Amino acid sequence: MPRAPLLLLASAALALLALPAQAQDGAGVLGALGDVFSDAAPGSDERATLSGRIIQLVALMTVLSIAPGLLMIMTSFTRFVIVFSILRSALGLNQSPPNVVLSSMALFMTFFVMQPVFEQAWENGLQPLMDNAITEEQALARIGDPFKDFMFANTRPRDLELFQGLAARADGSEPLPVPETADEAGWRALIPAFMISELRRAFSIGFLIYLPFVAIDLIVASVLMSAGMMMLPPVLISLPFKVIFFVLIDGWYMLAGSLMESYVPMAGG
């Protein structure tokens, strides 16, 4: 069933459950629906409370549905998973390591890199909100600030300038100067700029990873050509050499360490 009808049904069920007891007798369902519409009059506290609850429920379901996307676009997950995929292609291995292993490795490395961000978001935003010390609006701003600092520290000014210029052109205003701090950067330009920067760095790292394996392929192909074995696929011979080369140089250790060290820590982090 589509998500929109589900939300409508849930909202209707909450509305019926929140009705006063007298709305359930006499006119039955029609009387209940009449009470719902009568509560829509201005100044009705019950209607305002019910509408707030429904909006909170819809917002919570929306956040839960887009949480995987937020994890990908606002953290280091994108760079890790792209580099691992390029490495598997460079080795010539189609199914090893499998996708679930690469995704899990990228996910746990993301948790390792983003741990200071998560801790600041919890201590400054989520925990005070659960203790009823701050409002939802204040908690949302405090939760987002550590992520904004992280993204700003790892975004190229050129990419940020590009999206700020596009946003200003769409709004018909003058382009703003490149922000010098994370507080001056807006979410509208910062998130896509961070994504572009991540993709650029991931493909740059992937290119450097590819070079030694391409050299091994060329050497094996030249040896086979000189030996007259032109019908033998070079990939079949070069594959074990590439695997043992990657193992001997301790490739996973070097790659994981280099990827995590490639991130600029937050200010004060």
Rank of each mutant, 00 (worst) to 15 (best):
I196R: 06
L129K: 05
L60E: 02
A227G: 04
L14T: 14
S76T: 09
A182V: 10
K242P: 09
W187C: 07
A4D: 11
N154P: 08
G172I: 11
P177L: 12
T135P: 03
V29A: 14
P128T: 09
L7P: 01
G165K: 08
G52K: 02
P265H: 10
S96N: 14
L6K: 10
I55T: 14
L218W: 11
M254L: 15
G28T: 00
G31H: 00
T181C: 14
L19N: 00
L239C: 01
I86V: 12
G34I: 02
M231N: 06
K242I: 04
Q22L: 13
I249P: 07
Q120M: 13
S204R: 09
F118Q: 10
I249K: 01
N99W: 05
M74Y: 08
I209S: 03
G251N: 03
S173C: 07
V178D: 04
A106F: 08
A4N: 11
P240E: 05
G31A: 09
I205Y: 10
P20N: 04
I196F: 11
L17V: 15
A227N: 09
R53Q: 15
T155W: 11
M72V: 15
L6T: 06
I191W: 05
P179N: 10
E119V: 05
A170L: 10
N154W: 02
F112T: 10
R156Y: 10
A23E: 03
R142Y: 02
V247M: 07
M130F: 14
M72S: 04
V247E: 03
L232Q: 03
Q120H: 05
L232P: 00
L91N: 01
Q115I: 09
L30V: 11
A182S: 15
F108H: 07
Q95D: 09
F150D: 09
E174D: 15
D39P: 13
I196G: 06
F80Q: 05
L208H: 12
L19D: 04
D45E: 14
M260I: 13
Q127G: 10
F246S: 06
L162R: 11
G28E: 00
Q24K: 15
L126C: 04
E184G: 12
R88A: 01
A59H: 06
R79T: 07
G125S: 06
D131I: 02
Y210F: 12
E174T: 12
A67G: 09
Q138C: 04
W252G: 04
I143P: 13
T75S: 05
V117R: 04
P157T: 13
A227I: 12
E46G: 01
V214K: 03
K242L: 05
V247W: 01
V235M: 10
L50A: 13
A121H: 00
V29G: 12
F37R: 13
Q164G: 04
D217R: 00
